[in-house]
Design a protein around this nucleic acid. Structure first.
Length: 924
DNA sequence: ATTGTGGCCTAC
DNA sequence: TCAGGTAGGCCACAAT
């Protein structure tokens, strides 16, 4: 190896033009933190065309267009369908990447040209695919000899290397990245959202990691302010401040730029403001070129969303990352910081900003407020490790990090498919145009999974089993792929796999599909990564590996969704429907196997035996009757009872026994399935309350290395829904705890009655903390004008607009309370801040009748509890200890962790903490 | 009273 | 919200 070769981690990739040829530019960082730009000349853009007469097309093309370097006939498979013969295709190599689109448009409609392929693959992605390189992985660069060196003048990295050769190498740890978070403050328009044509930017703040010239933060002000500290710089006016901001960014040279809602607000605001100032001055007084190629930042605006990118750097707005990663009721910086890192945002209300700015005694508070916002954004990104997953997805998929952050799963899947298609000489289809999308939309009819009817009510001792990666394993087991779908009607039946939805695929012995092969690779890699994780001693490495295995899991599960996605390059209803039809068949088969074949298991000598294995009954045998009581898509819940279908007595059926049963069922079912499909034992529910499809709660015990980990798991019920108020969630949590752990319905009734009593008094007490518990929220999911029906959150948006406040934008969650003002729930919705400020009465009846009683009753009616019982006004008994809910704990040596089945609990109280007699749960 | 729809959010 | 898929519960309200 040459000793002047250099290793870098790829951060970004693009190209530039030098002497009318494209040069690939790889931006990266070495392990000492030096920013390096690697130039790779010699890669040429190309695409493909299928023609009636390929030779004729070749001749025509080379004669007609100067920018076409070559037109050759190559042999390729077409994108969809199992094929045995390649077809002749014209490969058109052009001079510049932009020529691809030009030539494509000019030849598309020529007579004799049937179809164009791969003309919409961006040049830098083409390079990554063809060279088998992956962003965020490390490469070693062999420098070109001096005479071949390129000397671009605009690149502002610390070092520029012209590469002779680049090769990927193995290295786990990331390079030391530099992060910069920023934020702007503008003078609002009378408390409403500021607009760039009217409102100036007055403060800009920055937070650095690692520090910059000894500073962790820096606030720039657009006027002279007395008595500021050394991390605040004052300028004479707005342009000077903005220019200082951009030159600070250039000088610090961050790899990652972040902020809170910077893509959605700040970036566009600053750019618009700069343009306005530049236009008004007649000369460009502001230089906002902050790319590592010394160019402007790039915008792409799609309707309400803008995505920002800066060449050579990564733009990562934390707001969308947090939206995706955390389920919160609101996503204002204030809420997010408090919920996720326990930090307070400083408070300067928009209406008062002007006053703060103009008041010398308050302006320092304003400066600190601004500084805090950048600090919080940076802290969120780093502490929550928001980028980890995306770095790993870029590495595994081969797509540039900025695409991974801004885009969806489509890009990732397509990059993987394209790489593998290229290896076997298969063409990739172009992205569908609007016409094709509409057609697919009309035809699209994908049937999904089965949800088994739940046996509603309370059950003890239920084992939960699920299929490991069901859809990916189905695709592997049945060779489901675009490349295996039968298009030749003469294919003999014995060569085909026919799915329950009547999809036809070639057998893997004849040709193994690309998707199954990709999935197999991802699965193997995931197993290997998890193994490395176990052995890793370095915490940092462990973190990276954990992100990698998560990324692999995400990719594994993306292929099914992609196959039925109407905007996909490859779209196949036959594939999508075959996957789900096998899934439905599978869950039914599982249910039947348990019902009709296994039926019972015998527990003997710490083993679970099937009827075949047990060979009669022995004295200490415990016979367990298995009844599937619920299942959704890839899971099945099996109730374990005695032979007569009654719940076991306390201690008769232990958790350890349930694990034996669960594992035995998994083993028997798995043995009948094709590889690599696998049913696995997940956990045991000591008690489970099945309310409806997709709605249940259970007291779950999961087997760990040293004992059982217990928790209450709630699915689909109001507790986990963000469109119900906190009071509902808390009330239901108490009820669930009482039912599942203590079997105490009395307690539930008293509790609900007390909650109702407290609601009744809220307009007298005006307890603000309690009012906050009544706040509902809903997402404003589209522009207000496009709603067909009125909605409560729309009412609130309208009211805020009329009052001249900051109007929420599409995609925001809107909090509201139901007041007595107006008629009907929709009209009665009001902004909580306004309710407090103007002392608007709360509609107590709504909360009692709509928010508390129906959800409580849904849980309690199985025990015979009636609406009238809950409504009885029992003058306040006062046991309001909200918020003492158990999360997750190691089960303490069986102490009280195995109460008797509820319907058999003795009528005398054996519970050490209560004294009053409990009614049986079925006495109501 | 029952049925249909628009809307929201969740399970998987 | 150009950002993978379908199933499904429940609310409010309108139509029957």
């Amino acid at each position: 190896m040459q000793n002047n070769s250099q290793n870098i981690q790829i951060i970004d990739i693009d190209y530039y033009i030098d002497s009318n040829r494209p040069i690939i530019r790889i931006y990266g960082k070495d392990d000492a933190g030096k920013s390096i730009c690697c130039l790779v000349p010699g890669f040429e853009p190309y695409f493909f065309a299928q023609a009636d007469n390929p030779a004729e097309l070749c001749n025509y093309l080379t004669d007609a267009f100067d920018c076409i370097q070559k037109a050759d006939i190559v042999e390729k498979f077409l994108p969809i369908g199992y094929q045995t013969k390649k077809v002749p295709i014209v490969k058109i190599t052009v001079t510049l990447p932009t020529d691809v689109r030009d030539i494509r448009d000019q030849i598309r409609d020529l007579p004799g040209v049937n179809e164009i392929f791969e003309a919409d693959v961006l040049f830098h992605n083409r390079f990554l695919i063809d060279k088998n390189l992956h962003p965020l992985k490390w490469i070693t660069i062999t420098p070109a000899p001096a005479e071949k060196e390129l000397h671009p003048t605009n690149i502002i990295c610390e070092e520029i290397i012209t590469a002779e050769k680049v090769e990927e190498i193995d290295k786990i740890a990331h390079a030391p990245f530099k992060y910069l978070a920023w934020d702007i403050e503008c003078l609002p328009d009378n408390g409403a959202l500021p607009t760039p044509d009217k409102s100036p930017i007055i403060l800009m703040s920055i937070a650095f990691s690692p520090e910059y010239k000894g500073m962790n933060t820096l606030v720039l002000a657009s006027k002279k302010i007395d008595g500021v500290d050394k991390e605040t710089e004052c300028y004479d006016n707005e342009n000077d401040m903005i220019n200082a901001f951009f030159s600070t960014v250039r000088e610090y040279d961050p790899d990652v730029l972040t902020g809170f809602n910077t893509d959605g607000f700040d970036t566009k605001y600053v750019v618009d403001r700069c343009k306005k100032i530049n236009t008004e001055s007649g000369t460009p007084v502001i230089n906002f070129k902050i790319g590592r190629d010394n160019r402007d930042l790039n915008f792409r605006v799609f309707g309400a969303t803008t995505s920002v990118s800066i060449s050579g750097r990564i733009v990562a707005d934390v707001l969308p990352l947090i939206r995706e990663g955390f389920k919160l009721k609101r996503y204002k910086l204030e809420n997010v910081a408090k919920e996720l890192i326990g930090k307070e945002k400083l408070d300067v209300p928009p209406q008062e900003m002007e006053a703060y700015w103009n008041d010398p005694s308050k302006i320092h508070t304003f400066i600190e407020y601004s500084r805090r916002d950048s600090e919080l954004a940076l802290e969120l990104l780093l502490k929550l490790q928001l980028l980890d997953k995306y770095l790993a997805l870029a590495q595994v998929s081969g797509r540039p990090l900025q695409d991974v952050i801004n885009g969806g799963q489509t890009n990732l899947v397509e990059q993987l498919l394209m790489s593998r298609f290229r290896e076997i000489d298969r063409l990739m289809a172009m992205k569908p145009n609007d016409e094709i999308v509409e057609e697919r939309e009309r035809e699209s009819n994908v049937v999904g999974a089965d949800v088994l009817d739940p046996k509603k009510g309370l059950h003890c001792n239920t084992v939960v089993e699920d299929y490991k990666s069901l859809y990916p394993t189905i695709m592997m087991a049945r060779n489901l792929c675009y490349t295996t779908v039968i298009i030749d009607k003469t294919t003999p039946k014995e060569s085909m796999i026919i799915s329950p939805s009547d999809g036809h695929f070639i057998k893997p012995e004849i040709f193994k599909g690309i998707i199954p092969s990709i999935l197999e690779g991802l699965l193997d890699k995931r197993v290997a990564t998890k193994k490395m994780m176990k052995n890793a001693r370095d915490e940092n490495e462990k973190r990276v590996l954990d992100a990698t295995q998560l990324a692999l899991k995400i990719l594994l599960n993306s292929f099914y969704g992609y196959s039925g996605y109407i905007r996909a390059r490859l779209f196949s209803l036959e594939v999508a429907n075959s996957v789900t039809s096998y899934g439905r068949e599978n869950i039914r088969n599982t249910q039947n196997t348990i019902n009709n074949e296994i039926v019972t298991l015998t527990i003997r000598d710490n083993q679970a035996l099937t009827p075949n294995e047990s060979d009669g009954t022995q004295p200490n045998d415990i016979i367990v009757l298995l009844t599937p009581i619920y299942g959704d898509t890839d899971s099945i819940f099996i109730h374990c009872t005695d032979i007569n279908g009654n719940e076991f007595e306390e201690e008769e059926f232990t958790l350890d026994m349930s694990a034996l049963v669960g594992k035995k069922i998994a083993e028997v079912v798995t043995s009948k399935l094709p590889e690599p499909m696998e049913l696995q034992y997940e956990a045991t529910a000591k008690r489970i309350l099945l309310v409806a499809k997709k709605r249940y709660a259970m007291w779950q015990f999961e087997q760990a290395k040293d004992g059982w980990i217990q928790k209450i798991k709630v699915k689909g019920l109001e507790t986990v829904r963000r469109d119900w108020c906190n009071l509902t969630s808390k009330t239901l949590n108490i009820i669930l705890e009482a039912i599942l752990k203590e079997g105490d319905v009395d307690k539930c009734i008293t509790y609900v009655q007390d909650v109702i009593a407290k609601i009744r008094k809220i307009n007298d007490t005006r307890d603000e903390a309690f009012i906050a518990e009544l706040t509902l929220s809903k997402t404003l999911s589209r522009p207000p004008s496009s709603y067909k029906n009125k909605q409560p959150h729309l009412t609130v948006v309208e009211k805020i607009r009329e009052r001249g406040g900051q109007v929420p934008i599409t995609g925001e969650r809107i909090p509201f309370l139901i007041t007595t003002v107006g008629s009907g729930y929709v009209e009665q919705a009001e902004d909580p801040a306004y309710v407090i400020e103007h002392n608007i009465p709360i509609d107590t009846n709504y909360y009692i009748q709509k928010q508390i009683i129906p959800p409580a009753l849904r849980l309690l009616e199985t025990f015979g509890v009636k609406r009238t019982t809950l409504e009885i006004n029992q003058n306040q008994k006062g046991l309001f200890d909200f918020g003492k809910q158990e999360k997750e704990e190691q089960s303490p040596k069986k102490k009280n962790s195995e109460p008797a089945p509820i319907d058999k609990q003795p009528s005398t109280d054996n519970n050490d903490k209560g004294t009053k007699r409990q009614k049986s749960l079925f006495e109501y």
